[in-house]
Design a protein around this nucleic acid. Structure first.
Lengths: 335, 335
DNA sequence: CTGTTAGCGCTTTCAT
DNA sequence: ATGAAAGCGCTAACAG
């Protein structure tokens, strides 16, 4: 492997000049720049990553930390962030950090030891003790996703605006003349909690009566098939009350698919008897029967924004910005 | 940040000794080892990753390259590989390399520049020119997955044994007394081609007549919803012939789900009129109606084996091993 | 505009 | 069993 000295010798200049050419400094005579460049080409030279890093202290590497891996949402997000990073010469490592505090922290610790330039952390369980991470974010650039917290200006967050997204759905149902709008959610998940807030606020705003018979939420164990089963159970419960809902807002598509299954099996007509909405627009939603109306998060925009903010923070970690983005409602057969 | 010299000074020894303690050399007086260790603890010292790497030439980092990101199979695989790597102090970066030759190669190039220790590459399109990668694998340790090639001993491959997996399904149908067994697949995908081979070979072996009216394969464009639609079209076509199949083996679960949808819509009974199998055991398969019988690849075993082989290759790249693993048949309502 | 020089923090001979 | 010293390949003052 050729090093900077070989290039310098071949070009008849000093190492520094070669270094300057690589880092496109100005103040280089065009003729020497050419000599250096052709020498680099001739020797098929690429600078040593480690040597560069040890000097600059930069790893040119980001980390994307996610809580679980059965959700293609994170895949999409990773994609977008990876592309954005690559464009700037950064590599991004996906970290399946889980939700155990010790595990997350030890993963973060390892990343810091490797001088990672910055990280994007996806929040999940609301019970996760995030304060440690917030402290760390003051030392190493971090952007939080799925953590809709606009309360503080010393951190940066990028999330979908589930609260207002759900409010728009409630309003739609009201305009359609639906009388009883129910909500099916997941306990203890930051993003779905936020959606629930949107439901309960807009219910009042639309003049509906709030009733606990209209809300079904359940804790989620880790198993993926669970989502579907929870939806199924939720519909079973909601439809067992004397006053049944005529619309069900679900916090995720998988819940909605479970809800729909119960409704169909029980002879209800969707959307005539009951309208159902999901949230996420997973691939299968377009293809189930009835096709699911749902909210599609602006994943591309979210990922790019997160990367963008992270790069700004890498330049100057005191920069902070928090953004909540509206989702797109995809109308299909279930409403 | 403290460096090795700070530790040495506090412990009253030289840098070399500290280095030796870190790398657990023998020939260290227990008392000095203790002194050094407590000094490290006191200073909360961690060695500089870059400085270590520049000396050893090792990045302690692997890459996992995948062709696309809408398949949770890769997520599972990544999980397993990541855990195995972490246990050895390696970080693994997920690379959404796509299937464009230039893009893959430039990604690989970037990884090499960063002195990645090894890579695991997931094969996909059979038209992908893999020979360049094979050449590269002679220089930098690489394990190929989903590339069931036992022909050559200068590369390492870990794959599910789709050929024999499908043969077992064919045999099951024969034992059930099914008369016409069809196959639905995807053109141009290495793993599904291999499954087709298992179908066509076992058809003969079971004494069935081979007929082109029993085979439907289609090229796959990149869009994910496509899988489902292809399955739907496939069933439409297969059931349009005068002699209809009474069993359909699908190369993937998504295809099978599409097949089932057409069959149900057309009034066929599953599995009485037509039995259907998938391959992959994706999460949704347990939950669709009828629940899908399918082959579950031993993903955990595959990932661990791939990591294992890669670590052996990192020690000595002339080591090679190719393994094909049997999947587990999950019997559900569709058979 | 370019060269000289001093490190970055560690590992690894070579001495002792 | 330990220390001294020479780099790994690069960047960044500092000179000129």
């Amino acid at each position: 492997m050729n090093n900077i000295f070989d290039v310098a010798r071949l070009a008849g200049v000093s190492k520094s000049t070669v270094s300057r050419v690589m880092n496109n400094c100005d103040n280089i005579k065009p003729s020497t720049r050419e000599k250096v460049e052709s020498a680099m080409k001739e020797l098929n030279y690429t600078p040593s990553y480690f040597a560069q890093s040890i000097r600059t202290g930069k790893a040119k590497m980001l980390a994307f930390l996610i809580p679980e891996t059965t959700n293609l949402y994170y895949n999409e997000l990773f994609n977008v962030i990876e592309s954005a990073a690559l464009r700037q010469g950064y590599l991004v490592t996906l970290c399946n950090a889980g939700q155990d505090k010790e595990h997350v922290l030890s993963y973060v610790q390892m990343l810091r030891q490797r001088n990672i330039d910055g990280m994007i952390y996806c929040m999940y369980h609301s019970s996760f003790p995030i304060s440690e991470l917030i402290d760390i974010s003051h030392e190493i650039p971090m952007v939080f996703m799925d953590y809709p917290n606009s309360q503080r200006d010393d951190i940066s967050c990028v999330s979908a605006d589930g609260l207002h997204d759900i409010a728009r759905i409630t309003r739609m149902f009201q305009e359609e003349g639906r009388k009883r709008v129910a909500f099916v959610g997941l306990e203890d998940i930051v993003s779905t909690n936020y959606r629930y807030l949107g439901y309960s606020a807009s219910l009042i705003a639309c003049g509906y009566n709030f009733s606990s018979d209209l809300v079904y939420q359940e804790y989620l164990s880790s198993y993926a098939g669970e989502h579907f089963a929870i939806g199924y159970r939720a519909a079973q419960k909601l439809m067992s009350y004397p006053e049944k809902p005529d619309a069900i807002i679900c916090a995720t598509d998988m819940l909605a698919i479970g809800v729909n299954r119960y409704l169909l099996e029980s002879g209800y007509h969707i959307p005539q008897d009951v309208a159902v909405t999901g949230y996420d627009n997973i691939a299968i939603s377009a293809v189930v029967f009835p096709a699911l109306s749902t909210m599609a998060q602006p994943v591309k925009q979210m990922g790019e924004l997160a990367a963008d903010i992270l790069f700004k923070k890498i330049e100057n970690n005191s920069y902070n910005r928090t953004v909540l983005l509206s989702s797109d409602f995809i109308k299909r057969g279930s409403t």
